[in-house]
Design a protein around this nucleic acid. Sequence first.
RNA 1: CGGGAAGUGGCGCAGCUUGGUAGCGCACCUGCUUUGGGAGCAGGGGGUCGAAGGUUCAAAUCCUUUCUUCCCGACCA
Length: 568
Amino acid sequence: MRWSQSFIPTLRDAPADAEAVSHKLLVRGGYIRQLHSGHYSLLPLGLKVHNKVANIVRKEMDAIGGQEFLLPAMHPATIWQQSGRWDVMGDEMFRLKDRSGVDLALGMTHEEIFSTLGIELKSYKELPQTWYQIQTKFRDEPRPKSGLLRVREFAMKDSYSFDLDQAGLDKSFTLHHDAYVKIFDQLGIIALPVQASSGSMGGSASIEFMVPSPAGEDDVIRCSSCDYRANVERGTSALEATDDKPGPDAPFRIATPGIRTISALAAIYDDAPASRQIKTLVVVIDDVVSLVLLRGDHQLNNQKLQDSASAINVRPADPEEIIAALGASPGSLGAVGVTDLPIYADHGLNGRTNMTTGSNEDDWHLGGVDISRDIEISAWHDLREVAAGEKCIECNAELEIIRCIEAGHIFKLGQKYSHAMGISVLDENGRAVAPVMGSYGIGIGRAVAAIAENCHDDKGLIWPPSVAPFTVVITLLNIDQADSITVSEALYKGLTDTGVEVILDDRKARPGVKFADSELLGIPIRVTVGSKGLSNGTVEITLRKSNETSEINVDEALPYLLNLIATY
RNA sequence: CGGGAAGUGGCGCAGCUUGGUAGCGCACCUGCUUUGGGAGCAGGGGGUCGAAGGUUCAAAUCCUUUCUUCCCGACCA
């Protein structure tokens, strides 16, 4: 491709709106442009990178027996109603009506739609099946942000496996897991597989592939010693034993005028450090006012609560609801004597005695509280959010928390959709069996952004060769000089003829502009053709990644480049 | 949805406080010079100042409403 004829609108300044590095560089490099919030146009170079990522994904899906489909992006409401997710998906699903008033949705994912085809599976002999597509998904995100990282319209590779039994699903799941490892390896980014929450997908297990980056939105717990890794929405840690001194036979009242916080109580009352207080939160779980109890120094993880309660929606109660439920204001709340509300307690409180908590009367707390004796716990769950520095449940080493981009997510769905959508096959005994399903996703555009987040310097992008829009840029410094033109054109033809993707910078522009643009674009190899080198019979070959430059004789340049590309 | 910020040519910004008919840098076009790290000079093109309403002889500027975008939080497969 000739640069002079290409649409590559590079910018010296990033738009003021851009914050994330990938966003700035992809816009400045002429890869993407925003149409409106959460919707981006891919420009020719952006599409090239996008396609390369998609093709790597495609290749690895094919390698595990995946068959590519393309399903509609627009769906009838009825099919989502059949699975129950028409309601579950809430505001995040784009909905519309056609001219006759029929409810429609833009697909956020395709479990239901693939299931309509799964109905045609009739025999265990046809299983397993692995089906996938690379299709546009629509999600009405509450807050699109950071360029391609969080958008409302994006291409996603989604695949679905159908197996006869759990053992089959385990195998399909492992195949996908290993394929994902290979994919991210080829994309040139580190993606840590971590235990994750399944969220609205349901199902028994899920693993996310997380790319460490400050631009990410998820926190991952990582053990400094063993290979324990989990999303904070899912992971836990070992708690050190707490010494509760023996308590009284019944709780006693403590006058605490004006005390409204855990830390304030700990400060004035020696016997109530935060770790020996009970924190009482009032939440509304699918319209049911409920209490959540945690150790005073622990934080609630909302997703854990939502998962534990199998809830669609969890929100903090507002002050009026709290007073109506408990008769006191936040800061003085407790669960002792509460019998009419569901009470969820975190495992960190299990077996604890002689603790301090609110009394549901402003300015008074209760001491000597024994959890099992004094509080009617409805259910015990893991609800607290792990903090950095806590100890690993596997090996007791220190845990760290790292910010990550969720680049892929694989789920064991089980039979939820098979049952809901009416898929069944006959097993070898002639009995109808609902296949066990799995679902597996990689966001293509998000992967592009994740690579950009990880592969750049202060001059611009540094694409891994596997996804670079071009492998080589020939920087022709003087477009009026016959020698330079001859050498450049010969190299251009030589590389093109061997299938190397090259862009020839034949623009009428100053050298500084050409160098800066080639670095901004992040093309792995630059060949500089100029009079300085040609006077010695050489061209310069520069690696974007290391900025390492070699002077190579003109005659040897082509084989040198081909060898360099082969061994990059 | 709560909090904050911002909308002026393709990009970055000034002008607004104190109303007087829009400007700077980059980019773009023409010419000359220059030519190995974002050139210089000269000339030139391009903007309903987000939108609507109001105040006024006069509104980018003041008032009201509204839309949009970004950031933090909430939320989120």
